[in-house]
Simulated scan of single mutants.
Amino acid sequence: MSEPVRGLVVSHATLAEGMVQSVRQISGAPEDALRAVSNEGCGPERLQASVLEALGEGPGIVFTDLPSGSCAFAARRLSVDRPDTAVVCGVNLPMLLDFVFHRELPLPELVDRLVTKGKSAITGQCREGAVHADRAASR
């Protein structure tokens, strides 16, 4: 059996830490499954070094808050030299929860699954839809 994929959430300010703590509280995932890095106070080189250190060895996915900016740039630069590393931008909580329960999947399959899960978790409604606010139906 291959090594489970590690996850790293990289974000602006404290968003990553909050998301990782939420995932651990909800799922009971072990600390080595998902970690957090903030770009706060980091220049490009320092941020990339922090991401590399936190990711460790083996297959990994770097989740970023935005598709551009320092977090995504550092993740993409790092992934060039690490063929077993993927980058997923626009992270959300449903995506991370799905990750911790399916990290044994092959990296390409896992990335496709997580992007689908993240997109499907985004729903919206206007005031007219609030009549049925107690229903968990997507619109």
Rank of each mutant, 00 (worst) to 15 (best):
K119H: 08
V87N: 10
D84I: 02
G60S: 07
T14K: 11
A121E: 05
V80I: 06
K117A: 09
G118V: 01
L8K: 08
C89I: 00
F63W: 06
V80D: 00
L66D: 06
G7S: 07
V115E: 00
L78S: 04
R76Y: 11
R113T: 00
C71F: 14
Q21P: 06
L78G: 09
L66T: 12
T116V: 10
N92C: 10
R6Y: 02
S138P: 14
R127F: 13
G18P: 09
V51K: 09
V87A: 11
R135E: 09
V115N: 02
V20Q: 05
A137H: 15
A130C: 10
D134R: 15
P94E: 00
L15Q: 10
N39G: 15
N39E: 13
V20M: 10
R24V: 01
R46K: 13
L8D: 03
R127E: 02
E128V: 10
T14L: 14
S120F: 06
A136T: 12
R76M: 13
M1K: 09
H132L: 13
S138T: 13
M95W: 06
G60M: 07
E17V: 13
E53I: 05
L97Y: 02
V62Y: 03
L15P: 13
R6A: 11
A29W: 13
R103V: 01
L52Y: 03
F73L: 14
M1N: 08
D81E: 03
L107D: 01
V20N: 04
G18V: 07
R76Q: 11
T64R: 06
Q21K: 13
V23Q: 01
S120G: 08
V87G: 12
L52S: 15
V111T: 06
M19V: 03
F63Y: 12
P44A: 15
T14Q: 14
E17S: 13
K117N: 01
Q21E: 09
P59K: 03
A86M: 02
S120T: 07
L66P: 11
E53F: 09
S50E: 07
A130Y: 11
G118S: 04
T123E: 01
H12M: 05
L47M: 09
R139C: 05
F63M: 06
A54E: 05
C71R: 07
M1A: 14
V10Q: 05
S38K: 10
S22E: 02
L55T: 02
I122W: 01
A54Q: 05
H12F: 09
C42V: 00
S2P: 15
P67T: 04
P83V: 00
M95Y: 11
V80T: 06
A74P: 15
G18T: 04
P30I: 00
